[in-house]
Design a protein around this nucleic acid. Structure first.
Lengths: 104, 104
DNA sequence: TTCTTAATATTGTAAAACGATATTGTAAAT
DNA sequence: ATTTACAATATCGTTTTACAATATTAAGAA
């Protein structure tokens, strides 16, 4: 990625974006990976999957295995707890950004 | 801190906030630490100082030692390169947050 | 000279990010 | 029926980062 500072910024957001998308519709790893790529964010599976696992372990998302064309996919959906934390995180994100946008 | 997800979000912003403040006036470690604390962000010196050092090494901020009441302080100011990256980072931050604020 | 204090610096450990590699499950090909 | 191909998830080993705790620095005060 372009720059470490911006990379860190993105990584701070990645969990929240997973929750955000999982709140709209079930998501799975490879699809999310592709979408990030489309938006210019390259994150490896070695980074991405452990994040999904951690979010699941923490109870923010829940997986449902599905057999799609003979391939197993794990579709993750947000939980109630995940929704609550997403709401908080959104507020915090807005707060942090608002500060940056104050008069220069 | 409250929650890892929100903690990560904050940590993604911390470098940018350092640059932001260093762009307005010279800042030093302990003062910045205190200000974060006042805003509810607890980050240890073992985290904070290496971040300052890294930003300096990367050429985004530059230190000027001053003797204040017999104590040495390192006042950091933003560099041109730092200003350029700060601008980029702000844009990226706004972009990332904007996406979260899209209709639910 | 020794004590105190504000500040910066470093150390050792635990956790995270990463690219690379391995594994899984099944449908299609042989 | 066995092998191959493929999409997808999972893990491994290394490097980097976060962290709390501890050490160091410098000089004015006692």
């Amino acid at each position: 990625m372009e720059n470490k500072l911006i990379r860190d910024l993105f990584l701070g957001f990645i969990r929240i974006h997973i929750l955000f998308h999982a709140a709209k519709e079930p998501v799975y790893g490879t699809e999310f990976h592709e979408e990030l790529k489309r938006h210019g964010y390259n994150v490896s599976f070695g980074t991405l999957y452990p994040i999904f696992h951690r979010l699941e372990k923490d109870g923010y998302i829940i997986a449902k295995k599905e057999n799609i064309n003979g391939k197993i996919r794990k579709y993750y959906s947000i939980t109630e707890e995940g929704n609550a934390i997403l709401k908080q995180a959104k507020e915090k994100a807005n707060e942090l950004v608002a500060e940056l946008n104050e008069e220069d």
